[in-house]
Design a protein around this nucleic acid. Structure first.
Lengths: 230, 230, 230, 230
DNA sequence: TATGAATGAGAGTTCATTCAT
DNA sequence: AATGAATGAACTCTCATTCAT
């Protein structure tokens, strides 16, 4: 619900900087292009590609965003807003199992469509973004799981971190077959869901604690994008 | 058991080609070095690094492999050798369920240890090697699955491609937590295994056909470098 | 006294060109900003910085000056105004030696305070402005020198160009120590002054002719940017 | 005498790396090109220019030197060696005044020919190089001055730092007129030398202490080349 | 006329790939 | 056959200059 990213505010009262017409348009073009390019080719795509895709020069990209890293962060802030919003919405579903299923579907629908987002949520991009995402998601996820457990619709040994891990795990289906079979992930979600139901065999490995899970999503690769540079 | 890679043939008599042994040795050195370097730093590591690690010049790498990308493929070939051997070994296990579990464990044990290998498996587009690998794996996997189905220990709607997908999917756990929790993947394997048992809910998405699965592992994303490009 | 730069003329009656005043004001703002920015950061500072400092857009800078380099030249023009005025004032000093000393002090006081100005003086290649400046300076300097020679307070082999060269030369002291020892140049001026007195040894190299001196200050090094380039 | 820079050592005993034929040649080409380009255009010249001048690709430059900064440092080490050697050689001159004159001529002959060297010796490049230069020069310069003073051939109020300042100061003549009148600096050296003789007027500003002088040569500009980067 | 957004060439640097030795 | 030097395209980022508003 809350928005990290932009504020296309009421442009009638304060005419502080009216010029924004074309600039705002280009900014939007850039963001759209970046979203598309990163979604398709991953976050290693070059800014030249993004600019070309937007139909502007590289310099324009650098006028709007101080560097690739910030552009990525800006885009992802939006995508993550959508992501979080979709997940928070599932809290309104009464049936605990349906809510859980909805949670998975929401998360996966968003992530499977966007390779860049997947990479960012795998921690390839930066710690800060990840932390903010986690701050907003761990609560809702915990709630969802608690309710499902209380209702007895999931196995008792399931923990919060498991849900995150499972989403991430199923995401990788999209890396393999996303282009040609964009809905294939549903099959594996359903398979996994069956595994989440009560009555499963004892799990030999413990789940990550919440702290470890958060750390795992952050400490890791991080090779890709230049860090904030100071 | 069978080896794709080396052909340590026996022409020690004709002194005309004394290099043969050295060449094979260099090839192995390179593959070993590549696996180590890529396993640690991912496939973005430079070939110079690999060559240095192998104690040979870059040129030598290019004598053995037309490009980085074929080297990557070759690595996979070797790993897949191990992998295939391990899997073929599971055919000897009488209990169909135990055999299936052994299959997963074999595959995952190999792949979770090697970041580069995982990236290659998710990203390679060398049709030929992939094809060869698949030629060797699809049979055994099919057999494993058929036996499990006949014994009634897995759901009927499971298909061969599912097993490959699931291995790949669980692999991604290692991307997240492999460094700090190297055995965590077992938890999610067990969860998935519970989902494979009979009595699950109907799956809404069809599995990939064998052909599509093979294509999915091949057609693909261009993570590495533009291929030969002319 | 006379001003190259501004022409705050008086057309307040005809409302056809009410901008005239604003334009002149902007020009002055720009020059002031440029001098401050360049004085502090050297002439490598960007025009965006200068414009921001002046509180105008870059475009405005380009309306007033065809390029960075002409702006630099204009700065010099202003400084030279001060410089020339200060120097002309020394013509009123009766004592020929005191007048000469006053000339040096005037020139150096202005130039040692401004890194950008020094860089421009060492590096500008705008023939026209330089020429105009020289037109105004060569006369007074010649007069000063002539009087000093006639009075026998300087060596006979001194020529007009020498005085300019010496000023420029001593300026470089400010590049070295201007920040921490802003008055150090006086020491080297005094040393040089002692060298200008009669009775020195024969000079092995001829002074530049006035024409060559003017050319030397003009023909030149390209520190700034490639000129208009088409 | 001692050499910081290279060691074109005895290539007959240890054939450690024989391949160096072409590589060494290119390295030499690069150094020669760099010296020429930097001497002519200053240290802001681009590595592309240097490489083009050497007839090699940029990549080659980067094979031999990790970055522009190191290339510059390497070149300058050599030039500075020459510089220091030339100056040290003047210690062998018996006549104190002649030695002093020789010192100035040696320093200026080298520096006036090379704009890049001038910039480096003005502190534009890096602190370490400067420090090393100073370590080697302050001693000899002090000796030269002491002898001249004892012999009574220079004014008593002259200090070590003055000699360095004067060289730097006269160097700027080369910035102005070096291209067209490469020997003009001699005129101003002679003028200054006359000013150094005993009997001058009292100097109103104190000389820099040795420490301040060293600091002045270092703390200053430093904007130009990228520092070592960690 | 003033603005500041857009442009694109150019700088430093890396690395897959080629080729002389 | 092996080496490692050479190449050049590509990447990120800056800035003088142009141009639509």
């Amino acid at each position: 619900m809350a928005t990290i990213a932009a504020e296309t505010s009421t442009d009638d009262l304060a005419p502080s900087r009216p010029q924004r017409k074309d600039a705002a348009r280009n900014r939007d073009l850039l963001i759209a292009a970046a979203r598309e390019v990163f979604a398709r080719r991953g976050i290693e795509a070059s800014l030249d590609d993004v600019a070309r895709h937007a139909g502007v020069g590289v310099g324009t990209a650098y006028r709007h965003f101080p560097n690739k890293y910030e552009l990525l962060t800006a885009i992802m802030a939006q995508s993550i807003d959508d992501f979080v919003a979709a997940i928070e919405a599932t809290l309104d579903i009464d049936d605990p199992w349906a809510a859980l299923v909805a949670f998975f579907e929401a998360g996966l629908t968003v992530q499977t469509r966007d390779r860049g987002l997947r990479e960012v949520l795998l921690g390839v991009h930066d710690a800060e973004t990840m932390t903010r995402v986690q701050d907003r998601l761990m609560g809702p996820i915990g709630t969802l799981l608690k309710r499902a457990k209380k209702a007895g619709v999931v196995r008792k040994d399931l923990e919060t971190s498991d849900l995150g891990m499972i989403v991430t795990m199923i995401c990788s289906i999209a890396d393999l077959a996303g282009d040609t079979h964009p809905e294939l992930w549903r099959r594996y979600l359903e398979l996994c869901l069956d595994g989440l139901k009560p009555g499963g065999t004892r799990l030999s490995a413990a789940a990550l604690s919440d702290a470890d899970f958060r750390a795992a999503m952050i400490t890791h690769k991080q090779t890709v994008t230049t860090p904030p540079a100071r």
